[in-house]
Design a protein around this nucleic acid. Structure first.
Length: 924
DNA sequence: AACTGTGGCCGTGTAG
DNA sequence: CTACACGGCCACAGTT
């Protein structure tokens, strides 16, 4: 039974390791045994007559039964029987289960829907009963198609004519639908045709679109059909939509209601556990390779939402006494094994209870390692619950979220989490979000004592879990909401970028509206007119305007902001790939797209609402008009309000990313004229607004893309300008920030001190992560001092203070009083060392030196180096000595960093450095 | 042949 | 996605 099931889910599975050589299993076990030093507590002298082979070992001498009163429960486990992962219960009917995912099952050739039942916290499956099959479209007659596919008849289920709307050509079109037996046949057979449509869509996505599934919602499954279930009061929603969207058409309002429901339905609470494995390594810096899995797994930790914490730990020689495990906490269960195989098997048996498992980097490490190691330990594939898929790893009995991949998502990092973490390590994310990071360790896993190892491992699992539970499950609720908006399953959503979310959402909407999904080739052919040139060489089209700021300090500065400018433009000008530049005679009513010079660059059809315009417009309106307000409304119950905050964040992700993806040429619905119309209209709007402001006597100091910095504006004039923008462009211009003063140095480089205190630093060198610490510290100190300034007159005093400080730092630098760490630069290697063919930047030079020393360096690594005297000019920090640093270079860096702050205050660097230099020369 | 000055370009990080 | 800042690389020209 289970065997059958395994192979079924394994239909699409393709092991990472298929191409690897087949091992002699006996040999392997022997080899691994050499690494795992067996402890003296062997099966022979311990638990022969103990119930279920479980006993407690508190020290080497005494063996006692489990007692509740000791600090943590320590259980010695002696022999574990392998058991296959349980089969998931299959249902044919469902009333109120949440759909979490959909996959294609090769063995049955059917779509499988993963359902979460909140009543028993179990994952269940539904196999398609509607007879849905993979398909694609071509533009030739069925009879011709049958002829072309004569030799592939056994893969063909049906061939027939279908009529749908072709948005690009604005008419109904007939195409031939070819229904085939399996997804692979789509891939193969489409090549026999010159033109084909919808043949690049993954089958499980097709299933979601065609069945109208909205992952993350409750559904009713009955008689082969699947329909979302709602508990929300429809009347209330309709009333609110009619009130807030009264200017929209009937059709848009209807769509709005269906969208609103996604944000009101409560999310499921999913039972889950976080896991983390530790692998023995002989050398601290070496990361074990999951492809070979040559070192033993010495510890696994599990932490679940019900407060259960387990550490599965391997007893080895020379890692201290089991006594060390006593005080891990009363809620911690410690299971000690003398055999790695038993440890792994027992771990597998334990995770069978969970419908969802969470890891940090499990796709690339924990799961493949566990999988390969299990094979090495002689565990048969049927007893390993892990499945290696094309681009991720998961479980046979549960779904898997890899938080590393989710938090690495730029939109999550910048928009949903508001840039709270900068690096993508578990430690850095947890520290900045939870205020609690990994445990520190000096030694490699191989040398840690048993107590330390257990604690370290457990902490990792606990913080991994906490990343999904903090702030009332913020991350889980966010994931569920993104699933609902994008119509992707949980495993896809947590692993793909925002462009994939947006693409899927648009495909779903096309299918729902009976539109053919256009292929990339035809959009490019029909909508390719490009009219603007980018300022920067090598870019495709012109972007935004940045106003040159005056250098200096300005008191009482208000910053005005167009609320989500680009999405608003997309909505207001009906921009979409199908509405832009209509073919002659195809459109009745058009409007010109003018840029900031008043030159017509494109035109857009206004006959019917454009699909991207409608959807992006709706998402924007939902965020601005409804959820941003609700998330701050003190009259709403706090827990509901926090839900609205999550909704608002999810919408923010989509709204902010929407323009970006449509401007990316790899995006399937990309059209250059749309992208350049958006930026051109943006330039036009900010330019006209700036002109109007000046006409009204307002002083515009600076502006970038969608913002205007005004110097001491009169409130009445501000309000008048707001009204003008609203009437003229239908856009909302808001006061975003009020600065006590702003110091400008260059475009995209300034700092401001808020009315209520607090500093905003933009672009300045002192803020960049690749600036050495010594310069950053000086920069911050100066800024702190400046932020205390209340009135213009006080600047003079600060000026003197700064001069003294710079003197001090300058002298300290000259006297080698900084450490290498304070002087180091950290720069990311954005590609492999070998790929730097045009130039060899400094960090690459340093990386090459590291490689010569035998250190592994790869793409994405941060290289830390210092500048030294001599031909190469750099050395990785590991190889450098303080005496060889290049003083002049560091003085230069200090100069550029501080000058950006000093110049607006009219402090001359040469004046300061000149006197220090003389002093220095005099002393030496 | 070695050195110096210069301007364009490359690479990184950032603003929006 | 484009715009911008900054440092360093590199080719080229002209000089010693």
């Amino acid at each position: 039974m289970s065997e059958k099931r395994n192979t079924k889910r394994g239909g699409r599975e393709r092991s990472l390791f298929d191409y690897m050589r087949k091992y002699d299993e006996k040999d392997l076990i022997k080899k691994s045994d050499e690494n795992i030093v067996s402890s003296d507590v062997s099966s022979k002298d311990s638990g022969e007559n103990i119930d279920k082979n479980v006993m407690i070992q508190t020290s080497k001498e005494e063996t006692v039964r489990n007692t509740e009163n000791i600090e943590s429960r320590i259980i010695f486990i002696d022999k574990v029987e392998a058991s296959p992962p349980p089969s998931l219960e299959e249902v044919s009917y469902a009333e109120d289960m949440y759909i979490l995912d959909v996959a294609y099952e090769g063995s049955s050739g059917r779509a499988v829907v993963y359902l979460y039942d909140e009543n028993d916290n179990k994952l269940k499956i539904y196999r398609d009963r509607s007879g849905h099959r993979p398909y694609f479209y071509v533009d030739i007659d069925p009879s011709r198609v049958k002829e072309i596919l004569r030799e592939d008849a056994r893969y063909i289920i049906d061939v027939y004519r279908v009529q749908k709307i072709d948005l690009l050509r604005k008419k109904f079109v007939n195409r031939t639908k070819i229904v085939v037996t399996d997804p692979l046949s789509v891939r193969r057979l489409r090549e026999k045709f010159q033109n084909y449509w919808e043949a690049n869509i993954k089958y499980h996505h097709n299933y979601i679109y065609d069945m109208g599934i909205i992952p993350g919602l409750r559904h009713k499954i009955y008689n082969g059909s699947i329909t979302p279930l709602y508990q929300t009061d429809l009347k209330k929603i309709e009333d609110e939509i009619n009130r807030l969207f009264n200017e929209e058409s009937e059709e848009v309002r209807k769509t709005a209601v269906s969208w609103y429901l996604l944000f009101e339905e409560k999310p499921p609470k999913i039972k889950r556990a976080a896991i983390d494995i530790e692998v023995y390594t002989p050398i601290k810096s070496r990361v074990p390779n999951p492809k070979t899995a040559e070192y033993p797994i010495v510890s696994i930790a599990l932490s679940d939402v019900d407060g259960r914490n387990i550490v599965f730990i391997l007893l080895r020689e020379g890692i201290g006494s089991v006594d060390e495990l006593k005080d891990l906490g009363s809620d911690v269960e410690i299971r000690v094994y003398s055999s790695e195989r038993d440890l792994v098997l027992d771990f597998f048996n334990t995770i069978y209870d969970y419908p969802l498992i969470v890891t940090f980097n499990g796709d690339n490490f924990d799961l493949p390692y566990l999988y390969e190691r299990s094979l090495r330990l002689g565990i048969s594939k049927d007893f390993i619950p892990i499945v290696m898929k094309e681009n991720h790893a998961t479980f046979k009995h549960s779904l898997h979220i890899d938080l590393y991949r989710f938090f690495k998502n730029k939109s999550i990092q910048n928009y949903a989490m508001e840039g709270r973490y900068k690096e993508h390590t578990l430690d850095s994310i947890a520290t900045s979000i939870l205020g609690e990071g990994k445990l520190s360790r000096e030694e490699g896993v191989g040398r840690m004592s048993i107590g330390k190892l257990a604690r370290y491992n457990l902490r990792d699992a606990q913080i991994t879990l906490k990343l999904t539970t903090f702030q009332d499950e913020l991350i889980m609720r966010l994931i569920i909401l993104i699933m609902r908006i994008s119509k992707l399953g949980i495993e896809d959503v947590t692993r793909t970028q925002v462009s994939a979310w947006i693409k899927n959402l648009f495909y779903w909407e096309h299918r729902r509206n009976n539109y053919f999904i256009p292929n990339e080739k035809e959009i490019r052919e029909i909508k390719s007119k490009k009219t603007t040139e980018a300022t920067i060489k090598g870019k495709k089209y012109a972007g935004a305007i940045v106003i040159e700021p005056p250098q200096g300090v300005f008191f009482k500065v208000s910053v005005l902001d167009f609320a989500s400018l680009y999405p608003s433009i997309i909505k207001r000008w009906n921009l979409s790939y199908e509405t832009i530049d209509p073919a002659p005679g195809e459109c009745n009513k058009t409007t010109d797209i003018l840029d900031e010079r008043g030159i017509k660059i494109h035109e857009v059809c206004l006959d019917s609402p454009g699909i991207t315009s409608v959807i992006i417009g709706l998402l924007r309106d939902f965020r601005v008009k409804i959820f941003k307000k609700k998330s701050k409304d003190k009259n709403i119950d706090p827990s509901l309000r926090s839900w609205y905050d999550v909704v608002q964040r999810a919408l923010k992700v989509y709204v902010n990313a929407s323009y970006g993806v449509f401007g990316h040429e790899n995006f399937p619905l990309y059209a250059v004229p749309v992208a350049e119309s958006v930026t051109a209209l943006g330039r036009m709007i900010i330019t006209r607004t700036m002109e109007k402001a000046r006409e009204m006597g307002l002083l515009v100091l600076y502006g970038d893309t969608d913002s205007l910095f005004l110097w001491d504006p009169e409130p009445e004039k501000l309000e008048k300008l707001r009204q003008w923008v609203l009437e003229r462009y239908g856009l909302e211009l808001e006061v975003d920030k009020e600065f006590r003063f702003v110091a400008f140095s260059l475009k995209k480089n300034y700092f401001g001190v808020y009315q209520q205190g607090g500093i905003d630093i933009k672009g300045l060198v002192g803020k960049k992560k690749n600036t050495p610490k010594f310069a950053k510290e000086a920069f911050n100190e100066i800024l702190q001092k400046i932020s205390g300034v209340e009135k213009p007159e006080e600047i003079v005093k600060v000026r003197e203070w700064i001069k003294d400080l710079v003197h001090e730092i300058y002298t300290k630098l000259k006297n080698y009083e900084y450490t290498l760490d304070q002087l180091s630069f950290t720069v990311m290697l954005s590609k492999d060392v070998k790929e730097y063919v045009k130039n060899t930047p400094q960090h690459v030079k340093a990386a090459m030196m590291l490689i010569r020393e035998g250190v592994q360096v790869s793409q994405g690594d941060n290289i830390t180096f210092v500048k030294v005297r001599g031909k190469e000019g750099v050395k990785p920090i590991q190889l450098a000595k303080i005496s060889e640093i290049d003083l002049d270079k560091y003085i230069e860096i200090l100069r550029t960093t501080l000058e950006q702050v000093m110049l607006p205050l009219s402090i001359d660097w040469d004046e300061i450095s000149g006197s220090v230099m003389k002093l220095h020369k005099f002393i030496s």
